[in-house]
Each structure stands twice: as C-alpha cells, then as structure tokens.
C-alpha cells in the first residue's frame, strides 16, 4: 500500500496553518476568579450569558469537525464553571488533547480523581511564589498558596501531568529561583511568562507589577529554561490560521490577545461559519504573515524571542514593529539584527 510518508507534528502543524485549520482552541469558561491578582488583565463581567454545557459540547463537536486537536480551558478560574470537569471529559471523549489552566485552589480530591481518569495533556497551576507570604501577597487571598500546593500534591500523587506557571512580576521576583527549584525537584515543566498586559477594560494599573528588566536578564543567564522555544511553524504565531479563542459568552476571537473586536458570537452563528467567513480572521492571518516576513527580512528577530502580532499592534501600532517586551527579549537573547 502506497501513501505519503509519515510526518511529525511540526510538518502537520505547518500543513494545518496552510489550510487554515483551527487546531488549537482556547476556551475561557468564566471571567470570574476567586483570587485577586493585581497583575491580572481579566475584566470580571459576571458572565450573565455564559454558554451552557450542552452549547459548549456542540461547539467542541463542530470544532473537531473543522480539525481541532487541542483545547485549553482557562478563565478567570475555569473550575468556577460548574460543569468544567464534565466538559473536559466530553472533550477527551471526542479525541481532544485537553489542557487546564487553573490557580489550583478549587482542585480537591474529587477533582483530582476526575482529572486522573480524564487524563489531560496538562494541568497548569499558577505559582507566584515558593512560600505562602509571597504567593498570597500576589494573589491577594490568604491561604491560596497552601491550596495550590495541595492541588499540586494531589495531581502528582495521581500522576496527572502537572505544569507550573509563573508570570514574571515584581511580586514573584524574590522567589523565582525557588519556584524553579521546586519544579526541578518535582520533575515538572515550569513556564514563565513575561507579558503583563493592561486590563481588558483599558486600565493600566496592572503594568506596575511588571518584573524588572534586570531580573529577567539575570534569570535568562542563570536559568536556560526561561527562554521560549521558537514557533514550530517558523511563523510569528498561529493567529488567524491555527488558533481560535472563545470567551464565556460565546464571542469568538483570533486568539486570547487579539480581541479588539469579535469574529462573531456562537449564540447566533456556528463556529464553522465564523471561522470560514470572518474578515477579521483573515486580517489576523495576514497580519501574522506580514509579521513573519518582517521578522525574517534582514535577519530581524532573535531565535527564542517570540513575537506577538497582537501586542505589536497594541503597543507599536503595527504588526511590523518592535514592542517593548519583545525588544527586551531580543536584548536578553542577543542583539537586535535589523531596523524597524
């Protein structure tokens, strides 16, 4: 029997980007959260029109038909959505690789048992410190560190794939290295994100929590883990081609950061129609293509420094321009090679 040769994930991903298949789905189940992190960009809307379990099930089924492989449930705190576990079970039953991004405080023994059975590709728990005083100061909720650590222990006991995540903030700076040691001791991946964003309602107070350039520079020197891997497809990102994000009320966006306007709402239009017909999706895809070409031109960009077209537009007014945090990463990882 003859056929095309087997291929790896990178090749498959590139083919999906070429065909504009929404492989990677991000679902915000709720914008509500039980923590009060000062650096959080989320606007708590109350989610009066949050989609039901059956509506989400239908959306996931439609996305599967379109070619979706991976779904990440986030928030707010996704476990505040009453049927979050049922939805994850449903997604796994469809063949999705499921990811859960949580603060861990609502993840008790029952939820851990359920997750062990569901077998998600990862459960990402945010740690803002390696001790209660630092973590709880960042989250604004006393006891949140102990609850997150207990959740980590429950998942590790059950061999659920745990990932630690730490936004680089002034709050977490004093214990970043200690969190890294924790991850190493546990043998789990540790993801750092350097991007503190303005709030969705436009307020910029969160930005005062951004980590200092000196700290990021120091960490990059002492912790190779901090450097991000280049995008598998060699593109700026998959916006408009392989990623889609949906908010609690069914508004569809090219990605979680590209949300100055919605591609449509699932209450009125199917995801297939939105994905196929949205001018905004095509605009985002073209922007990502332009960003990739710009990065490649004249050797701009630095391997490992990930470029976000949505942030470039927000901060620099163009997808073909450096924005502050990208420039910072270039500085950390190597000298900039081109001019804007």
């Amino acid at each position: 029997m003859k056929g095309a040769p087997p291929q790896g994930l990178a090749t498959w991903w590139a083919e999906m980007a070429r065909r504009a298949v929404p492989v990677n789905v991000r679902i915000e189940l709720t914008s509500n959260c039980n923590l009060r992190c000062g650096f959080c960009y989320k606007h708590r809307s109350g989610n009066a029109n949050a989609l039901s379990l059956s509506a989400w099930g239908e959306v996931l089924g439609d996305l599967r038909t379109l070619g979706a492989l991976s779904v990440a449930f986030t928030g707010g705190e996704p476990l505040l959505y009453p049927q979050a576990i049922e939805l994850m079970r449903l997604a796994r039953g469809m063949g999705y690789a499921v990811h859960l991004l949580t603060n861990g405080t609502l993840l008790g023994n029952d939820e851990a048992d359920d997750l062990a059975e569901i077998y998600p590709a990862s459960v990402e728990i945010s740690l803002h410190g390696a001790s209660a005083p630092v973590h709880d100061a960042a989250t604004g909720v006393s006891g949140s560190f102990d609850a997150a650590m207990a959740a980590c222990a429950r998942l590790r006991e059950r061999r659920v794939k745990l990932v630690l995540k730490t936004p680089l903030t002034l709050d977490s700076e004093p214990e970043l290295e200690a969190i890294g040691e924790l991850a190493r001791d546990w043998g789990v991946p540790w993801r750092l994100s350097s991007e503190i964003l303005p709030a969705e309602d436009g307020h910029r107070e969160a930005l005062v929590h951004s980590a200092s350039a000196a700290t990021i520079q120091h960490l990059a020197q002492v912790m190779p883990v901090i450097t991000a891997a280049p995008a598998a497809s060699g593109q700026a990102c998959g916006v408009g081609r392989t990623t889609v994000a949906i908010d609690p009320e069914g508004n569809v966006f090219p990605c979680l950061r590209w949300r100055h306007s919605s591609m449509g709402n699932l209450r009125f239009t199917s995801i297939a129609e939105i994905w196929r017909n949205s001018a905004l999706r095509i605009e985002a895809a073209e922007a990502a293509n332009a960003a990739s070409a710009w990065l490649a031109g004249d050797g701009r960009g630095t391997p490992g420094a990930q470029f976000c077209p949505a942030l470039a537009i927000r901060y620099a007014g163009s997808v073909c321009a450096r924005y502050p945090s990208f420039a910072l990463w270039e500085q950390i990882l190597g000298e900039p090679k081109g001019n804007d």
Partner: peptide, 23 residues
C-alpha cells in the same frame, strides 16, 4: 489524542508527548 484532517492523521501519545504522523 488524535485528529484527522483530509489525508493527514496526527496521533498524540499523552503519556510520552510523542507524536505519530500517519501516511
């Protein structure tokens, strides 16, 4: 975990994170 788009199937081994592409 898996997906099939057209003639391309990709299989994810969630234990090892290995991927298998099928012809």
């Amino acid at each position: 975990a898996w997906q099939v788009v057209g003639e391309c199937a990709i299989l994810l081994d969630l234990v090892t994170d290995a991927t298998i592409g099928l012809n």
